[in-house]
Nucleic acid binder design. Structure first.
Length: 425
RNA sequence: GGAGGGAUGGCUGAGUGGUUGAAAGCGCUGGUCUUGAAAACCAGUGUGCCCGCAAGGACACCGUGAGUUCGAAUCUCACUCCCUCCGCCA
């Protein structure tokens, strides 16, 4: 959420951000509610002051044996007046907060203009797409031939969009996220976290999934808990409602989690294979930083995600998202896409974002500067490091051989008890 | 699931209707003293929000939300969380 004072002073910039992110929050209404709210509060505060002063007279008068009934009558009128002011102000708090929660973050100054993905800018590429002397197969054929996945039974036990990994498939999945976690925790300075996969409403609101994306998430209604769409939610909320010491910053966490998404708006898209599924595995990186360093930290965060792909030897490109393609909470975001030669598509496997103080404000996460007074909001960042299923796809499709076998990258061998390739059984 | 107990500032802990945002101690920061440190002593030390250029001032906050009262940390109700014991359980 944005600073209300910032909105008061920059209404046009905020309105521009709302429309560039295709949102519909009513900034003008917010400002008029806010104006009225402050009037009411000021009046109430004056009456309260009066009340406090007068209430002190009661015991004094009683002590002198005076009749206090006139004073009490006066106080009763005052009390009703305060109550009325209070009620009217309270009634405005809900609408103010509702609108505030619906206003998206303002894109950073260097974010490219543009209203959709066509405005995105490719920043760099790494690696060459593999050349094949045969027509590379899509991953679902490779999975079939190698016996890695059982799509039919997954549908039977859960429904479409769910995956059962079997045998080498299950081992490869586990090897991949274990490799990624090890890389980030041993070489990139992240502390490993294993979070809950169900979180409460306050956590979902803190990172910005709620109130807008309620329909995108699986909800355990009996307990009002949500299945996490990404480990970003539990991990970023670790420090919700805290005041950190400046010396504690920056904090880096890396977490594996399963991720659950209803994909309600994407029904019918990418129905085949592993491209778009309701449950997938992901290693997520989360950073808490001082405001001054957050953009430098965003660059190194992207680098940490790229390191995963470089070690695996998978070609990718980094995309700087334009304003219109930026998510609700992000101020700046890079996507990393892997080339998947079987399906002949670039697949998004990472999204690295700086939220500046947008999430911190929602979750009331601050730090105390070692110099100077008061508190400041921390900056939060996160990035996939990286998302499975799609990584799994690219790996199979890039390293496939004509006979249907798949070569495994050397960095994974230790995680697979020395196994160097996947062979049809 | 059953039965009890509890929630106060960074921490410990007092406070059961009236200048209590809150005693005391610890911790922390600055100062005095000291060659330096410790000890001792002195001073300071929550957050939010509004008004103000500022100095400063007002208001709110004692788990959360309602209520009683002229006045609530203190009384009432609901909820949440934590602790202890019993039962159940991977």
């Amino acid at each position: 959420m944005l600073d209300l004072d910032f909105i008061r002073k920059n209404p046009e910039r905020v309105k521009a951000a709302v429309s560039s992110k295709h949102q519909s929050a009513d900034v003008a209404a917010l400002l008029s509610f806010d104006e009225r709210y402050r009037q009411l509060r000021a009046e109430r505060d004056r009456r309260r002051h009066e009340q406090t002063e007068k209430s002190k007279l009661v015991p004094q008068a009683k002590k002198r044996g005076e009749d206090v009934s006139a004073l009490l009558a006066e106080m009763n009128v005052l009390k009703d007046r305060i109550q009325a002011l209070e009620d009217e102000a309270k009634a405005l708090e809900g609408p103010i907060r509702d609108i505030l929660l619906q206003i998206p973050n303002v894109p950073a100054a260097d974010v490219p203009p543009g209203s959709d993905s066509t405005g995105n800018v490719e920043v760099r590429r790494w690696g060459d797409p593999p050349k094949f002397s045969f027509k590379p197969k899509p991953h679902w054929d490779l999975c079939q031939g190698l016996g890695l996945v059982d799509f039919e039974r997954a549908t039977k036990i859960s429904g479409s969009g769910f995956i059962v990994y079997l045998g080498d498939g299950a081992r490869l999945e586990r090897a991949l996220f274990q490799f990624m976690l090890d890389l980030h925790t041993t070489e990139h300075g992240y502390t490993e976290v294993f979070p809950p996969f169900l979180v409460n409403r306050a956590s979902m609101t803190g990172t910005g999934q709620l109130p807008k994306l309620e329909n995108e998430m699986y909800c355990a209604t009996a307990d009002d808990l949500f299945l996490i769409p990404t480990a970003e939610v539990p991990v970023t909320n670790l420090h919700r409602d805290e005041i950190l010491q400046e010396e504690a910053l920056p904090i880096f966490y890396a977490a594996y989690s399963a991720c659950f998404r209803r994909e309600a708006g994407a029904a019918g898209r990418d129905t085949r294979g592993l491209i778009r599924v309701h449950q997938f595995d992901k290693v997520e990186m989360v950073k808490f930083t001082r405001p001054e360093t957050s953009y430098a930290e965003l660059e190194s965060l992207v680098g940490n995600a790229e390191a995963v792909l470089q070690r695996l030897g998978l070609p990718y490109r980094v995309i700087h998202l334009c304003a219109g393609d930026l998510s609700f909470s992000a101020a700046k975001c890079y996507d990393i896409e892997l080339w998947a030669p079987g399906v002949e598509r670039w697949l998004e496997v990472s999204s690295c974002s700086n939220f500046e103080d947008f999430q911190a404000r929602r979750m009331n996460l601050r730090y105390r500067p070692s110099e100077g007074k008061g508190t400041r909001f921390v900056h939060t960042l996160n990035g996939s490091g990286v998302a499975l299923a799609r990584l799994f796809i690219a790996l199979l499709e890039c390293f496939q051989r004509e006979d249907g076998s798949v070569a495994l990258p050397e960095v994974l061998w230790p995680y697979l008890r020395g196994q160097k390739e996947l062979r049809p059984k």
